[in-house]
């Protein structure tokens, strides 16, 4: 696994993420989307806990797989990738737009809930990750506005964990946190397609929650490797306690947090 060399100025970070995150998702959108259909349990629980008629934001909604989990809420999804946002618009009655986590086009203090699933770990500096969390918290109704006394809006944030020694990736405590993770896009060949279908389940079992394919495990023998294209995506792998620290630094309060299948997650509100 390649170690990421991230630039330390803001302009550089933007360009870096453009090349190593945004442009990759734009190109793998359709394939990526076809592997993303099963909601993660913690996210599903959070969405189903929302009151009927609640209004939410899904920041980095990808193909929109979480939009339809609870039919009694309304969600505006946004994604940095136009191709993914386009796929997400199919989830009636929800909405999907193209937007950047750091420049969200929503009025502040409007939403009952927000989710950020596997997004913040794509920002390449500590300051930008805190800024991303801040932008999510800002959308939430403040505690005084909430219908239930002192509640306010809640955000669920989910990031990839460094501590995942039992996963296929095998990262663990003490390893490098800024990494490049490959996504292998197969050339569309009928035979290769068929084989892939059969292997998808197998890959899901062994893989972490992310579940993407690795070249070594899933290379159909019939496919010529030269036709496959490998994209590298930048990730910052979160250490235990780091997500909570980012949330506190962003002016939020952690209500609940935990670890689920190679990921750290936290539910946060805005401070009183």
């Amino acid at each position: 696994m390649a170690t990421a060399m991230t630039p330390d100025d803001s302009q550089g970070s933007q360009r870096y993420e453009e090349e190593h995150v945004h442009s990759v998702y734009e190109q793998i959108a359709s394939h990526f989307s076809s592997t993303r259909y099963k909601p993660w349990p913690i996210v599903e629980r959070f969405l189903k806990e929302q009151q009927d008629g609640a209004v939410g934001a899904d920041i980095g909604c990808g193909n929109g797989k979480y939009l339809a989990v609870n039919p009694r809420v309304y969600i505006v999804g946004s994604d940095r990738s136009r191709n993914l946002a386009q796929i997400a618009t199919q989830h009636y009655p929800h909405s999907a737009i193209v937007a950047d986590n750091l420049s969200l086009p929503h009025p502040a203090s409007t939403f009952d809930f927000a989710i950020s699933i596997a997004v913040v770990h794509h920002l390449s500096t500590p300051a930008r990750r805190v800024e991303a969390v801040e932008a999510i918290l800002e959308l939430l109704k403040s505690p005084q506005q909430g219908e239930v006394a002192a509640s306010g809006g809640k955000a669920l944030i989910y990031v990839w964990a460094l501590e995942q020694k039992d996963s296929r990736r095998g990262w663990d405590e003490g390893h490098e946190q800024d990494v490049m993770v490959p996504w292998v896009l197969k050339e569309k060949k009928e035979k290769a397609q068929k084989e892939r279908k059969g292997r998808r389940k197998e890959a899901k079992e062994g893989a972490g929650v992310e579940g993407e394919k690795s070249a070594a495990v899933n290379q159909p023998e019939s496919a010529k490797p030269a036709e496959d294209k490998t994209f590298l995506r930048y990730y910052h792998l979160y250490k235990k306690g780091e997500l909570e620290r980012d949330i506190t630094e962003a002016g939020g309060e952690v209500v609940e947090s935990g670890y689920e299948k190679d990921n750290w997650w936290a539910i946060a509100t805005r401070k009183q």
Binding site: V76, S95, S103, P105, P107
Partner: peptide, 13 residues
């Protein structure tokens, strides 16, 4: 983009 969306949108700046 359905018009309901505009109820939750403002300028990104």
């Amino acid at each position: 983009m359905k018009l309901l969306t505009l109820n939750f949108l403002t300028c990104a700046i």
